[in-house]
């Protein structure tokens, strides 16, 4: 009997141990290792023990690296444009399509498809469509008698080209979340507004949007975090070029490690990206807590619907 009890006492730890060990070994340890590696001058052919400890020199070099700042700027610009466009289009569509439609479930399946496809394949598709001669865009332009556009070979256009591809892939994410939030809104509030004679537009501005705000802000932050992770689509489409016009930070980290073989420098950049994302995540968590405390009643209503 004693033995059985003892086993029972250890059960939760036994259940938790395998997952815990893997997370510790393969996720937390590498992150700690990265912080250490950012103080090293390290090339992939060296064992980490042979790498020279150079203190903060990687960070000092980053501070003086104009290309890094440009890449950082591109990342912020990309994240900003992408998130703003996707929020406006996604929420707008959700407001337009929030009604009883017969084929809604089919429609939803169609909208999820772009998100499920590998970023690599999305990059391929768009690179093909942007192709200067055989791409569908330039072909159509030519047929209609317009000049063809240097989609991926001009630094200005390439940036927009990458944004368009991301908006295509991820707007449905916002749309589906916004629609879910909207359909969870309390019917009573909307009906009351209708009785008071509120029009469609008034209902949207004064009732729907304010009530959806908590979910929308979380959605925005989630999407923002993901926008900083984008890499493969850009890698395939432009590989950061022309020049540095589309070289977002994640891609720069990859290229610094892969092509220039400077692992320490790459780790220092990874660290900065990680800190940025951690700040965003903490902001999201704090916002969540504030919402829970201040307006727990309202939240409960929205979520229960």
């Amino acid at each position: 009997m004693d033995v059985v009890k003892k086993i029972n006492k250890f059960t939760p730890y036994m259940l938790l141990a395998p997952a815990g060990i893997i997370l510790l070994l393969a996720l937390l340890y590498p992150i700690g290792y990265m912080v250490y590696a950012s103080f090293l001058d390290w090339s992939p052919s060296q064992h980490i023990g042979q790498a020279e400890f150079i203190g903060l020199r990687n960070y000092i070099n980053l501070w003086n690296d104009a290309a890094f700042f440009e890449s950082f700027g591109v990342t912020l610009k990309f994240a900003f444009f992408v998130v703003v466009l996707e929020m406006i289009i996604g929420v707008g569509l959700a407001l337009l399509l929030d009604r009883e439609i017969r084929g809604m479930s089919v429609l939803r399946v169609i909208f999820i498809l772009p998100m499920m496809i590998a970023p690599i394949v999305v990059g391929l598709m768009w690179r093909y469509m942007y192709h200067p001669t055989v791409g569908v865009f330039n072909r159509t332009l030519k047929e209609w008698g317009f000049e063809s556009i240097p989609w991926l070979s001009d630094s200005g256009w390439a940036f927009y080209g990458v944004i368009i591809a991301d908006v295509w892939q991820w707007t449905p994410f916002i749309f589906i979340l916004a629609l879910a939030a909207m359909q969870g809104l309390p019917r009573s509030a909307l009906e009351a507004a209708e009785l008071d004679g509120a029009g469609e537009w008034q209902k949207i501005v004064h009732i729907k949007l304010p009530l959806m705000l908590p979910v929308l802000i979380i959605t925005l932050l989630l999407r923002l975090i993901d926008a900083f992770k984008v890499l493969e689509v850009v890698l395939i489409m432009t590989n950061g070029g022309p020049g540095l016009s589309t070289e977002i930070l994640a891609l720069r980290i990859f290229r610094t490690a892969q092509e220039f073989q400077e692992l320490g420098y790459s780790a220092a950049m990874s660290n900065i990206l990680l800190i940025l994302l951690m700040l965003l995540t903490i902001a999201m968590f704090v916002y969540n807590k504030i919402q829970e405390n201040r307006a727990s009643k309202m939240c409960a209503m929205i979520e229960k619907g």
Partner: peptide
């Protein structure tokens, strides 16, 4: 949920260097 959120935000690009180093050496 806090830990999950924090883990979720880690981009694969950040794991690239340390995972390569640890897994190889």
């Amino acid at each position: 949920s806090m830990t999950t959120l924090l883990m979720r935000m880690v981009p694969p690009a950040v794991l690239l260097v340390p995972v390569f180093g640890i897994w190889t050496f």
